[in-house]
Amino acid sequence: MTPATPSDEIRHRFENGVSWITLNRPDAMNALTWDQRERIIALLADASADPATRAVVLTATGKGFCAGADLRSGGGAPATTDRVAGDVARMIRLGAQRLVTAVLDCEKPVIAAVNGTAAGIGAHLALACDLVIAAEPARFIEVFVRRGLVPDGAGAYLLPRLLGPQKAKELMFFGDAVPAAEAARLGLVNKVVPADELEAAAREWAERLAQGPTRALALTKQLVNASLDGDRATALAAEATAQELNMTTADANEGVASFVERRTPKYLGR
């Protein structure tokens, strides 16, 4: 049997302005290897650079969205033997943190379509996305404490911003599974749908975003992501700069013209 390649294990297709990235190791609950992470990072960079790409959907096959790093294939921490100081920190920076940062910094809106269990870095991969749609069987698990580990992949950065520090600590201290409906109630998930409707729901939102003013969306994403990290003066200065930049785009001119002319705008993503 020919071994699976990263391209097989990370499927990619492009439809109607949307880049679909699909984790495809269902037998391993889509636990991520190093090569798979590099493939996802590259596809997100391509999405940012390609004017034809207007939105991204990140999803998976099988019963799991992503069970975390594949510790059996070198996707997690290095072996305990021959480890020197700095090895683990370097591995985290170059691996889990680069992956989550690639989602946060992608210049196109990214939707997570979570089909099943999202655990560890798999949960953080989903929660780093701009919008999260979960199938009813999905659940989110801060699994690190069960392994005696500290959360990585920006978990201690993301969760307090989504939940507040007290609830974030509860999830990280106990490692209990959070079902999709509870995740929606907490604000981790935008929408919960039946499993057989997940792809259609993600497509509806993604193609709607793909018809939007892409550069304005990119600038809005940057402003929101930075809003909790700075003071008011910094946020307002960034807002003014974003407005200045956006008003140079064709889509901004189209939006204003369509309003004046009382017609539906036709955005081109430029």
Rank of each mutant, 00 (worst) to 15 (best):
A4D: 09
F14T: 07
E15A: 14
E15Y: 09
N16V: 07
I21N: 06
I21S: 08
A28Y: 13
N30F: 10
D35W: 02
I41W: 05
P51V: 00
A52K: 12
R54I: 02
T61C: 15
P78N: 11
P78V: 12
T80P: 11
T81K: 12
D82V: 02
D82E: 13
V84Y: 12
G86E: 03
D87K: 07
G95E: 01
Q97M: 03
L99S: 11
T101Y: 00
T101F: 00
V103Q: 01
K108H: 02
V110K: 07
V110G: 05
I111F: 04
G116Q: 06
I121S: 15
A128E: 09
E136L: 00
A138K: 10
I141T: 14
V143I: 15
F144G: 05
R147D: 01
P160I: 01
P165W: 04
A183G: 12
V189F: 05
L198G: 08
L198D: 03
E199A: 11
E204D: 15
E207W: 07
E207N: 09
R208Q: 14
A218D: 03
G230F: 10
T234P: 13
A237P: 10
A238Y: 14
E244T: 15
M247P: 07
T249G: 09
E261K: 09
R263G: 10
